[in-house]
Design a protein around this nucleic acid. Structure first.
Length: 419
DNA sequence: TCTGGGGTCCTAGGACCC
DNA sequence: TCTGGGGTCCTAGGACCC
């Protein structure tokens, strides 16, 4: 069985820990620059405050109802998250931290699972001050459903879905749009096809599901039927991309200002890479004007990708590459509201990726390639190899275990070796 | 006046090769 | 010279999650 622990109204609950007088009072937390609502206490939800709603639209409701409004404090939320997760991980065989406020837990081998979960929940509340809900079921998707029931309908904050018939009855009451994996678009499409609740979705054929909702949608429905398709992911895994982006407090209308903002984000990305002991080979920059303003001088968004020869996590290098790229997409007639940097094609820091370049067909022979690798190891420097011969590629893959991991790009094949 | 920030995965379609 | 089929790789964009 898989259990999902989910902190209730997480950011709002964190703020309340130090302000117990706010228990039972409506609390909201706003995003960066106090732009929009990103967390609400139950009392605030009852007042009709919507998730993601721009704060300026809700000011009235805030004032009229004496809602307590907080700006974000992500350092605080991160600390609380760590505490909750470490208690969870000490209590069960294994956990998968899914987000800042959620974790899947492996409940296999635990007797009296419901009792166990109730006690676990008490412990978390007592030790951290954060209320959580726990849903237990045979699959991740069903544990999401169970968690939702636990939050809304269970006083003890725990719901277990074991019995198949009982589960189906719950699914009949569960709106399809609330399912994990069904967003706005799918929700609309499903309604159009007369599917309103989760049970109705489970009745569709596998072919239909795959056709209209891709393989992911099919797996999700199989999970609803009780078959586990999404495995627990144990342990830490290297991020595939890292992003830093912000909406500016004030709009920016000059190159220097934009370059400054991008420099900050680029060095933040580099710092995150170093913290993970990773290097990136691709850098992506993005700049935006305000999309909510019609005909505001000009609506413009642009992006540019930079591919590096050698992966790096060096702040100065990443910053300078970003600024170079900015020159090619910057338009002086625009007013900018937002910018960001993404680094991707991430590899471990301990490995260096090397690019070879060859002009002679005979390099396809293994010993020539190995000689080239040796030269590199001897500090010969960087060479570039371009594999124009199709046959070579096949041989390459056959020996992948010797040279692995490797992968290709359009212009050149890349080889990663221990430095 | 004021509209978040950070991720993952899948697919369709184009370029290119033989 | 033209055409078609089979294959790989890459990218952009779209969907989803919190």
């Amino acid at each position: 069985m898989i259990a999902l622990a989910d902190c209730n109204n997480f950011y709002a609950s964190c703020e309340r820990v130090f302000r117990p007088n706010l228990n039972d009072k409506p609390v909201v937390v706003l995003s960066n620059n106090d732009g929009c609502v990103i967390a609400r206490s139950n009392e605030a939800k009852v007042l009709g405050i919507k998730m993601g709603e721009p704060a300026f639209k809700s000011r009235d409701i805030f004032d009229r109802n004496g809602i307590h409004v907080f700006s974000t404090n992500f350092a605080l939320y991160g600390d609380f998250s760590n505490r909750v997760m470490s208690i969870l991980s000490d209590s069960v065989p294994s956990i998968e931290i899914y987000s800042i406020d959620e974790a899947f837990m492996n409940f296999r081998g635990i007797p009296n699972q419901e009792e166990f979960a109730i006690e676990l929940r008490k412990k978390i509340l007592q030790w951290t001050g954060i209320p959580i809900s726990i849903g237990i079921a045979p699959s991740k998707t069903l544990s999401k459903v169970a968690n939702s029931i636990a939050k809304k309908k269970r006083k003890n904050g725990v719901c277990i879905l074991m019995d198949k018939h009982e589960t189906l009855e719950y699914l009949k009451l569960f709106p399809v749009s609330n399912l994990w994996g069904v967003g706005r678009k799918f929700s609309k499409m499903l309604e159009k096809n007369g599917i309103h609740n989760a049970y109705e979705l489970t009745q569709k054929s596998d072919n239909w599901l795959q056709k209209y909702m891709s393989i992911v949608g099919l797996k999700m429905v199989k999970e609803l039927r009780g078959e586990s398709c999404f495995d627990m992911v144990n342990g830490w895994s290297r991020k595939k991309s890292i992003m830093t982006s912000r909406t500016f407090g004030h709009e920016i209308d000059n190159f220097k200002g934009l370059a400054q903002a991008l420099s900050t984000y680029a060095s933040m990305c580099a710092a995150k890479l170093r913290k993970e002991k990773s290097c990136a080979k691709s850098i992506h920059i993005m700049i935006f004007t305000n999309p909510f303003k019609q005909n505001y001088r000009m609506n413009y968004k642009a992006s540019k990708t930079i591919i590096l020869d050698t992966p790096t996590n060096d702040g100065l290098e990443i910053v300078s590459r970003c600024i170079d790229a900015l020159r090619s997409i910057y338009r002086p007639d625009c007013i900018y509201k937002r910018a960001g940097v993404i680094v991707s094609d991430i590899v471990p820091q301990s490995q260096v990726q090397l690019t070879f370049f060859h002009q002679h067909a005979d390099i396809e022979k293994r010993h020539h390639l190995m000689a080239a690798v040796d030269k590199l190891n001897d500090g010969f420097g960087r060479m570039k190899v371009r594999f124009a011969i199709n046959g070579f590629e096949k041989k390459w893959h056959l020996r992948q275990e010797k040279l692995s991991p490797c992968y290709t790009t359009r212009m050149s094949d890349l080889l990663r070796i221990k430095y």
